[in-house]
Write a protein that binds this DNA or RNA. Structure first.
Lengths: 331, 331
DNA sequence: TTGAAAGCGCTAACAG
DNA sequence: CTGTTAGCGCTTTCAA
């Protein structure tokens, strides 16, 4: 009911023009204090709330940003979203959601929808982007920041960690503690990020002249659990494993323990991301800690700068990762 | 660049009035096929995308809905969001995000922001709502649906499960399988939903004249883990436990096993929600399955009806729950 | 410091 | 079936 009040009502009651009301809202400094206070009072009295849509149309700025993600049912995406939402709030932006389920077509649709919604900027979390998509993105004038990934040419602003180094370093640590048969756990889908992690693993393994051992499982956790059991029933267990995801690491570890192995004595396990999952396994999971919340927060902050045409030092922000050692490794 | 094209450009090039273009977009049936096709072609040719903001202002419908949640770092909220996003997409609504961190003030702010954004409806996931907030909600003309909770008076449309019955039933099953010392695991925050679960537990326990045993832990999982260990160091373990959340169930179970108990032989454990966590514990967790995705999807669908003033049979939708028995119980 | 007036890009009567 | 004409509620020159 109360939302029928417009800027006209305020202007009339405060006995000023609507331009003045608009000014106290947007450029309070340009209005005499006395007038300003009177207007402010009327606004409060009437419970006036400026219509963001009308404002958007007139100013050609929606103060909305779009968030495109493959799904929310992934801990990393959710945590990012909290970071995004907090910073967006601070800078008075609203966030528009779009879930693509990793389908190309939907990702394109989402994009079109965002543009049509007149968002001022876009945050994009994509597991895989084609050249074509990157180009489309580059051709729009609307600023975009990639969350936790980047395009191969580094042409799109992005916030992420150095996955390759992280994977390299953690593999090296496992080598240094004496492991020789170190496996890398990954999934069928060839997402760029996972390829980077794999590259880091291979680099460390190669430098030490150890035999690489890449184990590929199904993307769907329920399915891969079965595969883990098969693995331990039929193959020789490695000394240690690095996994692209915490969940896979835990599933693998559980299968190992159920098959009679001891963790970390017989098998050391390291995950990636430091999700809540790591605290639920027994033993708790050692992992590469990715600052997920910060990725979202920093990306949103970067986007605000881009939207305001502020000078940006570096369009690709690499955040620090770290390692968390828990019960699944010896250390 | 391509977004500068307006409905005027299309009209001119297709040699029709802008009203006709608007019609092919909104009421294609009212335009002669030949004209329609010509317009459609021009639209495609020019890459015209209607400006959602202008449309919103003119039609007084934004086709946006607001989603207010305490946080995304909770598996249940995330899954709901996927359900919401999918249905919203199907009905051509966009979703606006707002994270409140369960702070009263922010919840109010969020609400104001949503109204100012001219959303056509709101989905609200709140762990706790005061009478005052419910009243404010009721006083706005904008339709609202509660996600997975309800107000005590049942005055606000809501989609949820019958938490009390679910808890009652699962407690009964534990009683029927011979357990006598059955504890209920909960947290300090007195959220309505948890109170309902507790009520169900107490009812079952009371009916069987068993002694109730309510164990309260810290809300923050990292903290409660320590408390679990203290518990098993100092107190007599129960025969079975029902937990308000999967995570707490798992933390408790891990502490029990680490203290030398066998699950499920010495201690049966049941969680609530059926999150991904349940598959990561060893043994896997038996739980009350809550159709989280569906709660989101159904709520969004209900909201579309409310926004269109369609007749709604029942404004409070109770979805079915079920029980999933895994390794943490005997069965 | 304030007001008048011209739109922003579109929808929705109302005519024709 | 199509065009004309008012706005939707606000921002933003331009004058005063």
């Amino acid at each position: 009911m109360s939302s029928k009040i417009t800027i006209y009502d305020v202007a009339r009651k405060a006995d000023v023009s609507l331009a003045t009301v608009s000014r106290v809202l947007n450029n309070p400094g340009r209005v005499k204090e006395k007038t300003r206070n009177r207007v402010l009072e009327v606004i409060k009295e009437l419970g006036y709330r400026p219509n963001a849509i009308a404002r958007g149309l007139a100013s050609r700025r929606s103060t909305n940003v779009g968030l495109i993600v493959p799904t929310f049912s992934r801990a990393s995406i959710s945590e990012m979203t909290d970071g995004i939402a907090d910073v967006a709030d601070k800078y008075n932006y609203s966030v528009f959601l779009n879930v693509t389920h990793n389908e190309r077509e939907l990702q394109t649709d989402s994009w079109e929808n965002m543009i049509a919604s007149q968002v001022d900027g876009v945050l994009l979390a994509s597991d895989q982007m084609s050249e074509e998509e990157v180009n489309r993105l580059l051709n729009e004038t609307i600023p975009t920041v990639l969350l936790g990934s980047r395009d191969s040419q580094h042409r799109v602003p992005a916030v992420l960690i150095d996955y390759e180094s992280a994977s390299y370093e953690v593999t090296r640590k496992l080598i240094e503690s004496g492991n020789r048969d170190i496996a890398f756990l990954t999934v069928k889908d060839e997402f760029e990020i996972n390829k980077l992690k794999e590259a880091g693993y291979l680099k460390a393994i190669g430098e030490s002249k150890l035999p690489p051992r890449i184990l590929t499982f199904d993307d769907k956790f329920e399915v891969s659990i079965g595969e883990f059991n098969d693995f331990f029933a039929n193959e020789k267990a490695p000394d240690a494993v690095v996994s692209i995801r915490d969940s896979i690491a835990i599933g693998f570890m559980n299968a190992a323990i159920n098959s009679g192995l001891k963790v970390p004595e017989d098998l050391e396990v390291v995950g990636f991301q430091n999700t809540q999952y790591t605290l639920m396994s027994r033993p708790q999971l050692s992992t590469v800690s990715v600052p997920t919340y910060d990725i979202g927060a920093v990306a949103m902050r970067l986007l605000t700068k881009l939207m305001n045409n502020e000078e940006v030092m570096n369009e690709e922000v690499i955040l620090n990762h770290s390692f968390i050692w828990r019960g699944s490794t010896k250390k």
